[in-house]
Design a protein around this nucleic acid. Structure first.
Lengths: 187, 187
DNA sequence: TAATATACGGAGGCTGCCTCCGATTGGCTA
DNA sequence: TAGCCAATCGGAGGCAGCCTCCGTATATTA
């Protein structure tokens, strides 16, 4: 099936250098970091970058897939947790951290979920599927409103993650997420 | 004080053509629309655009100031409303509409609120001040949680507005905002 | 109508995106 | 170990957008 011819030594070396520098650049400048700059820092020509990663999304996907897959796996683990709502909140917080690693990433993943042709769709979608089981379980346990969809919930998490970036200081996302769960009305 | 020497006729004409085309371009392509394209469509040179509006923000601010000021004014009116929480929600919905006019505008206003050197800061800040009175009133009436700040509330509104753009179909923002007020816990 | 302050326009320098193709080289074979 | 060739590299070049600068044009005033 997956008869991947091994890469030539120079190709593999460049591939890995590129990923290292891309990670650094995206972390520092956000998902819009200059690709030419990444190639330059990796010590390869821009053509080499484009051969290995034909689009920016392809590069991002390679960096993120493992992280997103781990997040999906974590959802499966949390299905065994005794407290459905807490498990869901726990998982969402992790997702928020994951999409918070690069500036601009939340926008990308939120859009990817609505665009099957996106290169990021597959891993994002798998994550959503995994998460939706946590949602259903929390609903079934009567701990979560029954009229909220997994889509809405995920979007609210993304929104909180987005907002966390626009609040001075740390931990903004957690605070906002808590507010979203509790509601704003005085009780 | 404001002894504004009247503009030369051609200058005024160009100024207005530019605003018209900018409105159209931002509405169509979002706040990142090409400035060269705006100048082209307005039938003026790029230099003319930059003379009238030295930065993209200056152009945006001219287009938005009236709208934002109206929003601040609306907050003052709503202070007379008999139902503090409803008035606040009403006002927030209007703000959501205002920041939803151009793609990318929410990000801009959310950032402007944290950056006094931004050209948009003044009008955004005035709006926040006006809104915070509505917040305080709703708290005082015991209809809104006492531990929420106006900053957080505005940010949550912005987040809902942001998220509304990433949900297929209309009215996403209103639905999300409602969820934020009600809370997600089953009651 | 002539003088002059004001305003115009776009060339040009820069950066970033992406493609294409001649030059280079790793790895296999004899 | 030499030599071959497919795999890989690198960057020039075309395009678009940002912004500045300054020679040219023109509205206004006297």
């Amino acid at each position: 099936m997956t008869d991947v011819k091994p890469m030539r030594a120079d190709a593999r070396r460049n591939y890995e250098r590129l990923l290292e520098e891309a990670q650094r650049a995206f972390a520092e400048h956000g998902v819009e970091a200059s690709l030419e700059d990444i190639a330059r820092r990796a010590g390869v020509g821009i053509g080499t970058l484009y051969r290995h990663f034909p689009t920016r999304d392809a590069l991002l996907e390679t960096l993120l897939r493992a992280r997103f897959d781990a997040q999906a796996e974590r959802a499966r683990e949390l299905l065994a947790d005794a407290e459905p709502l807490a498990a869901l909140q726990n998982w969402l917080a992790g997702l928020g951290d994951a999409t918070g690693t690069f500036r601009g990433l939340v926008e990308l993943t939120a859009d990817a979920l609505n665009d099957e042709s996106s290169r990021l769709y597959a891993s994002c979608h798998a994550m959503r599927e995994a998460g939706s089981h946590l949602v259903e379980r929390a609903k079934a346990a009567g701990e979560l409103r029954g009229d909220v969809t997994a889509e809405e919930l995920l979007l609210l998490l993304h929104a909180a993650s987005w907002a966390g970036r626009h609040l001075p200081g740390e931990g903004g996302m957690q605070r906002l997420l808590a507010l979203v769960f509790e509601g704003l009305r005085a009780s």
